[in-house]
Amino acid sequence: MKVRLVTILLLFLSINIVEGQDNLSVQLNYANGLFRSEQYYDAVTEYKRLLFFDSTKTYQYEANLKIGESYKAGAKFDDAIKYFSFAELNASNDDEVFKTKTEIIRTNILRRTTERALQLCDDLEKDERFNTKIDTINYWRGWAFMLSDDWKSAAKSFAKINPNHELKLLAERTDKAKVSVTFAKVISYILPGAGSIYTGKILSGFLSLGWNALSGYWTINSFIEKRAFDGIVVGELLWLRFYRGAIQNAEDSAIEKNLEISNKSLRFLQNEYKGTKL
């Protein structure tokens, strides 16, 4: 009889506990709905409400992770990292720890704190718990390199996953398409305007060459006519100016071209790449 009474009492209590629990899950579903419909501000509010009323700490990991993701979606990267770190503290298994750590790495890449992202990748790689997840670590390391414009290193990272990895091929293509800033400058030292021609700015290169030839002629002509002061001043004010200008122009053109190439690849990643993105 006593056993039955205790059973009934437990049943009665459990109904209330389940109901409390159920309210939390209803709140979680509500917040998830807001998150799915990309209402990130409201989603953060509701996840925070869930955290506040979750006295049993049942949803600490999930809610903190989602708050982090919402902040990340709203480009509030500092807040995102803060909540991913809270989620990591509440992670109940290695998979959850790995998930939060990679989210922190991804947010660091977006925040352009690449050094930190790479350091976290290294730490994760050294952690024996994640020996089976090396590919994922290399994948995000590759992304960190790509977004810091180091395509060569990016290609190496993706090659560790698969020698024919789509992103490895993209990173290689981008790296090969880029022009050498040093080479552009050096050839401009030898022949003014050549650097600009090398970077594809042909008209600008020939104009630069023409100005240099004309001012050079005036300078030399002044010396031939024994007007040394004129020669020095024309040489200084015109020829040297055009000569230096050609070198500077070659450097700027090379940097601009490289930026265009990088941006083209980044646009591909943003709009056309089908794999996991940041």
């Binding site: 109901e19 925070k48 009323f53």
Partner: peptide, 17 residues
């Protein structure tokens, strides 16, 4: 106590925020 959107609960949550 279980209605998170009741005025009292809203106040508690607001104070926390």
């Amino acid at each position: 106590s279980n209605n998170y959107f009741s005025p009292d609960n809203r106040l508690q949550f607001a104070n926390y925020l």
